[in-house]
Every structure is written in structure tokens, then in C-alpha cells.
Amino acid sequence: MTGVIFDIKEMAVHDGPGIRTTVFFKGCPLRCRWCHNPEGLSALPQIFYKKVRCIGCGSCQVACDHPECALLGRCIHACPENCLEAVGREVDAATLAGELLASAEVMGGLFGGFTFSGGEPLQQSDFILELAPRLRPHHLCAETSGYASGDVFARLLDVLDFVIFDLKLAEPAAHRMYTGVDNAPILANLQTLKASGKPHLIRTPLVPEITDTEENLAAIGALAGESEWEKLPFNALYGAKYEMLGMAPSEIK
């Protein structure tokens, strides 16, 4: 089967132990207001338009038969400034595994492993279940919001060595308001993760006045319990990519 990914990042140093290669899966059920990876939201390939680089030359207004250009009505392979870029590509497990293993081979015994990030990797769990055995014996990690059915989560957990579990808001209403979804499945999966004994890390993005409130951090602290818990400083540039996708940050509300 195939999956849709939007990036492969070498030397990801904040995505688990050692020097890792992270693959970003496209598509996410959450709509966090502070999301800084909007290209991971839609499950479909999209076009990135880097407006600041556009010199208005009109070269893109040329007839072409590239399927990826069809929805845009402009050719993305004609821009001399590379302002238009396809974000997301469909790839089969064998091809993706081949690409990923090449970076592992370069690092030899010093390679840390692979991390599945996104978007939300749980959204493409069947694909990951097919991909994971092809990446063995390397260390495998997922960075997830935990939003999936208990069944899906448990099956994926089975093929992983390490989980980075994003825990944003403890209070259900606030979670619905700021991420668009209920946190009940997330909290249930957190219990599954903790009970599994699998090494993991809980992560909370510190969004001013939303997630970094005293009450929320206290509640998440309680949920985290004995688990390792990391608070991530907020990425103030979160809005920069929206315009490139022709989206407004407000669209994700």
C-alpha cells in the first residue's frame, strides 16, 4: 500500500535518542490553533507558494500536463525562483524504506533510529505497520497526538520502541476549543502507553495563555505522573507557512 508524506528530515536531534531520520506523515485530525506544520494538516498533496520569492515573471502560466499542477492551473516546474513546490507525495512502503535506510547506512553504528511524525502518524497506521518491519533492526519512535482509537494505538505501539506523546490540554472543553477534537481517546491511549511499560516522553507545547496556564500544567503534570515530561517553548513563527499554502491561520479554528 502507499502512504502520503511531506518531508524526510535528516539529523533530527529533538525527535528521540541519537541522530535520527524523521519522516513526516501528511494528514492530521487535530486543528491546533498554534500548529506550525500546516502542511501536515490535509491528507492530500498540496502546493506551497512562496510569495516573497515571486518576481511576477508569469513563467508558471504555461500549459502543462503534470498531474500535480492540475489543481493549481499553473505549472510548478517552470518557476525560475522555485516559488511553487509540491508538498506531499504518495509513496509505497518499499520505496520509502529504501530512502530512509540510506541515511541509516551513512551513519553506520552511530545511527539513532527513525521517527514517525506528522501530521499525525496514527492516521496512516496501516501504512506504518507495513513500513516498520522493513526498517528493522533500527530503533523506531513515533511522535503523536495520541488521537486514534484504542485499537489502532495499541497495534502501532506494538511495533515501536519509543513514543513521544503530545499532551496539550487536560481539560476536555478547552481541548475541544483549541484543537477541535475531544481528548478522551488521547487520555485513554496515554493510559495504554503508560501501562505498556514502553519507554516514552510526554511533551507539552507552551502556548501562551492556552497551554501554559498554571491549572493546565498542574493537571498535565498529574496525568504524566512518573513519566518523563518535557515542556516545549512556543514557536513564535507559527504563522509563516500558512500564507504559502493559501491558508489563513484562522482557517484552522
Binding site: C57, S59, C75, H77, A78, C79, P80, N82, A102, V106
Partner: peptide
């Protein structure tokens, strides 16, 4: 030749990609 430029500059093999 903007299309050729795009192809040569952004879509052809480059040193540094193993």
C-alpha cells in the same frame, strides 16, 4: 528558458544528496 532553468536548478541531481 525559465522551464529549463527550473529543471536544471531544482530538479536535477546535485552533489550532497548521497
Amino acid at each position: 528558458a525559465p522551464e529549463m532553468l527550473h529543471k536544471l536548478r531544482y530538479e536535477s541531481p546535485k552533489l550532497g544528496n548521497n
